[in-house]
Write a protein that binds this DNA or RNA. Structure first.
Length: 256
DNA sequence: ATGGTGGCGCGGCCA
């Protein structure tokens, strides 16, 4: 039963020990990373190869960066949004055995109305247009990553305080809905989950200890693949480790 | 509270 996970690690170099430990403990078939924050030449391929993982990487200096680690051979399908001129490393699509995996680091957006917010919405528009064509060529598709959007108020620790704010605004949620309308489903919500399930907690003000978080890290399955997804959960454990990422891994199980 | 914490890379940006 393949296991696929997604984790915003907030620097692969700062988090290498955590990622290696988590891989060793869980042995997922594939792990999509976001915010690797490293140029491709400096990505720690060897450390992952020792655990049996091949890495595809799309990185840049200091910011952003995505990677897919796989126990089986992977073929790179795309390293950017086609037709969207973007110097930021946020997209990696790979073909695995019998499905395709699209790893995303969606722009944060900074604040509603800012230039970064406009960039986020334009980026999401281009993403949806592309995913529609990707689904035509790769009907069995998982779209995973840090979406920087909490899909609904149930994904927010304090919906009143976050109402209309970046990560929760109506326009961002409408863009996510447009993506889902291509036939993708948020697989976390296909299964019973603990209340107050989040995937990101701000480093500040003891947000994790108080569980003041958001669920912004998602695994979306195409209609062709969704029936094979048998489970999905968020693993909070690495968020309790010393010097953690501010995000927790999201894990999905697929039937063979 | 225009702070609070963390990463990158050494001042200020980004989250």
């Amino acid at each position: 039963m393949p296991t696929v996970a997604s984790w915003n690690v907030n620097s692969i170099r700062a988090r290498l020990d955590h990622v290696l430990r988590w891989l060793d403990e869980h042995r997922p078939d594939a792990l999509a990373l976001q915010e690797t924050k490293v140029q491709d030449d400096d990505f720690p391929h060897e450390a992952f190869a020792e655990l049996g993982y091949e890495c595809a990487v799309v990185g840049q200096k200091s910011y952003n960066g995505v990677a897919v680690l796989s126990r089986r051979p992977l073929d790179v399908l795309a390293t950017a949004l086609p037709g969207f001129d973007d110097p930021q490393a946020r997209v990696l699509a790979v073909a695995l055995d019998d499905f395709a995996l699209l790893d995303l680091y969606v722009p944060n957006g900074s604040a509603v109305g800012s230039d970064k917010y406009d960039y986020k919405l334009a980026w999401l528009e281009a993403l949806t247009a592309w995913v529609e064509t990707l689904l035509a060529s790769h009907p069995a598709l998982l779209v995973v990553g840090d979406f920087n959007i909490a899909p609904a108020d149930a994904d927010v620790h304090d919906p009143a305080a976050w109402q209309g704010k970046v990560l929760c605004s109506d326009a961002e949620r409408a863009h996510l809905e447009a993506l889902l309308a291509l036939g993708l489903s948020d697989v976390f919500r296909a299964f019973e989950q603990p209340p107050e399930s989040f995937s990101w907690w701000d480093y500040r003000q003891a947000a994790f200890r108080r569980n003041r978080g958001l669920r912004i890290d998602l695994i979306l399955a195409s209609s062709a693949l969704a029936p094979r997804v048998s489970a999905c959960h968020i693993d909070r454990t690495p968020r309790t480790w010393d010097k953690p990422s501010d995000h927790a891994p999201v894990v999905a199980e697929l039937q063979a």
